[in-house]
């Protein structure tokens, strides 16, 4: 990212609360330099979209934000990611603590092979909440929040694998909300869904941003344009442009962004 852009995004963010501040993040998969000097700030209660062609590092970046990237062997990082002022790349920051604040929804719906109820209470249970009444309330609140309550309220004890793909993904969002996180990371959450389910998830995002800060990786540029407040364009592991969504799609300042958005490559 060029200096003027960095300046600009700093100015835009004046007076807003920052959830994530990424300063000079570099990441290597073995010898492969996958993220180069990333500079990116995420504002509270906004939807931040990350777009870019396959292999540009957008999934890698979002997985770094809750350190899921550590599951891949041979990953090295430098630089810092401040979450609410604390560097999460510092090994003394317990990753389990980070992930209770930062939830994640994955590309493929991945409910547990358990009942719908058990799926939602999984997070609260592992954090030590055992009171049945509270768990019941969490289940209803989360499923309502994920706009799936009316569809499943009569079959909470049935296996989650009986749900359709779109319902499973909303269940996964509910499961993520059940731990009452501060941020929700979404890694292409609609890429495995049909258009109607996609629409439902997108509508849901508009509701969710009232209570959560959302960072979403998407392949679908229309989706980024529809749902996000800010958009970051990644290319070859670099942030080419990061600004207001309305600006990036109407008047991008970098030629490469324009080429990508108008479909000339990627």
């Amino acid at each position: 990212m060029s200096e003027t852009q960095a300046q600009m995004s700093m100015n835009e963010n004046d007076g807003n609360k920052l959830v994530y501040k990424t300063n000079g993040l570099n990441l290597w998969y073995g010898e492969n330099h996958a993220l180069k000097d990333i500079q990116l700030h995420v504002v509270e209660n906004e939807v931040t979209a990350i777009i870019g062609p396959s292999g540009c590092g957008k999934s890698t970046y979002i997985k770094t934000l809750n350190r899921m990237i550590e599951l891949i062997p041979g990953v090295k990082t430098t630089g810092e990611i401040l979450y609410r002022g604390r560097n999460i790349l510092d090994k003394t920051y317990p990753v389990e603590e980070l992930r209770t604040k930062v939830g994640m929804v994955f590309q493929k719906p991945n409910p547990f092979p358990k009942s719908i109820y058990e799926n939602v209470v999984y997070g609260p249970r592992i954090h030590g909440i055992r009171d049945k009444k509270i768990l019941d309330q969490i289940v209803e609140k989360s499923l309502r929040g994920a706009a799936i309550w009316d569809e499943v309220k009569d079959r909470l004890q049935t296996n989650a694998y009986g749900l359709s793909g779109g319902q499973q993904q909303r269940l996964c969002i509910a499961r993520c909300m059940a731990i009452e996180p501060d941020v929700i990371l979404m890694d292409e959450p609609t890429s495995a869904l049909d258009p109607i389910s996609t629409l439902k998830v997108e509508e849901l995002l508009q509701e969710l941003k009232k209570n959560f800060s959302i960072i979403i990786v998407t392949h679908n540029m229309q989706q980024a344009a529809r749902i996000s407040d800010k958009t970051a364009f990644f290319l070859n592991g670099e942030v080419i442009e990061f600004t207001k969504t309305s600006k990036i799609f109407s008047n991008p300042s970098d030629k490469r962004t324009e080429d990508y958005i108008t479909g000339r490559f990627g």
Partner: peptide, 13 residues
């Protein structure tokens, strides 16, 4: 591995 990821993603040890 998706099931493991789901669990880790919720803060499980």
């Amino acid at each position: 591995k998706e099931l493991r990821q789901a669990s880790y993603g919720l803060g499980a040890t």
